[in-house]
Nucleic acid binder design. Structure first.
Length: 275
DNA sequence: CAAAGCTCCTGACCGC
DNA sequence: TGCGGTCAGGAGCTTT
């Protein structure tokens, strides 16, 4: 389930392949993912040159020379792979769930595969990106300078939902998902069950917990990106996520990692050190 | 308005 | 071995 760090790593992989290359052909192998592809999706992209490959939250944002911007989300199971195009532009080798192929003038094929089809693609005029329904209501980028304890406190003030559920809300912070929410709360020593408003004063100012959480979110995301960039660190990546029943890894804490469900999603946490 | 519940979809997993 | 049932999960939509 790609969250911000995974999407950022994908962005870094795709950028050298797509940027400044022309989209020679787009092969659409079905009419929809979760929702229909926009009208004339392939035709509107073909012949255009990719201007940039950027990211906002978990979205890949690809402006092209026609003035439109390709907006993509990987959903739950979406992935890209890059192949070298076969002679004669043959797409016969494609696999099950390969739904979209971007055939680039760089001689590469960028192939989108998504078994569960929770992914999303749209094409919007560049000027309308900031008001696009998927983008317009997103909260701050957690790795931006503007994001931190103060911003978090403002976003959580008065909210009666749990802290876990608040952090999953893309309007509160943009780009966290189920894994990194659990990881950040553990690092910040905050219970996922705590009411979101408790990190702020009644007037919305940050308490110490808000600062800890803001810093933890940044650190967890930065580490994940750094680790991904260096494949030597694979395995045992998470401190609490998917570790139900195992020992809490916090130094000096003898707790056991618990699992519970909040808003239909699994939460992993240690009752002993997360308050 | 906020919050909770439902929905989409397939692969993995479980018990028989 | 095969089969049916259950579950996970991002985010928009619907309901309360």
């Amino acid at each position: 389930m790609p969250e911000l760090p995974e999407v950022e790593l994908i962005r870094r992989e795709l950028e050298p392949v797509m940027r400044n290359a022309r989209i020679e052909r787009v092969v659409l192998r079905r009419a929809n993912l979760r929702t229909a592809f926009p009208n004339r999706f392939a035709a509107r992209l073909e012949g255009a040159t990719v201007v940039a490959v950027s990211r906002r939250a978990k979205y890949l944002i690809v402006p092209v020379s026609s003035g439109e911007t390709l907006l993509m989300h990987l959903g739950m199971s979406g992935s890209f792979r890059v192949e070298t195009a076969a002679a004669g532009r043959d797409y016969g080798h494609l696999e099950r769930h390969d739904h979209v192929v971007f055939d680039m003038s760089s001689g590469r094929l960028v192939i989108f595969n998504d078994p569960r089809r929770f992914g999303f693609m749209d094409l919007v005029p560049a000027g309308e990106l900031s008001t696009h329904p998927r983008i317009g209501s997103l909260g701050l980028e957690p790795l931006s300078a503007a994001f931190g304890g103060a911003a978090l406190a403002r976003a959580c003030a008065g909210r009666k939902i749990s802290l876990k559920v608040a952090l999953m809300d893309q309007r509160v912070v943009a780009g966290l998902g189920n894994i990194y929410v659990s990881e950040a709360l553990h690092l910040a020593r905050l219970s996922p069950e705590r009411q979101a408003s408790t990190i702020a004063t009644p007037s919305g100012l940050p308490r110490d917990s808000a600062h800890r959480l803001g810093a933890a979110i940044k650190l967890v995301l930065e580490r994940a990106i750094a680790r991904g960039a260096d494949t030597a660190y694979r395995g045992g990546r998470f401190r609490v996520y998917d570790r139900e029943g195992a020992r809490c890894l916090r130094r000096g804490c003898g707790g056991i990692v618990r699992r519970r469900t909040q808003a239909g999603r699994s939460t992993f946490y240690c009752r002993d050190c997360q308050r």
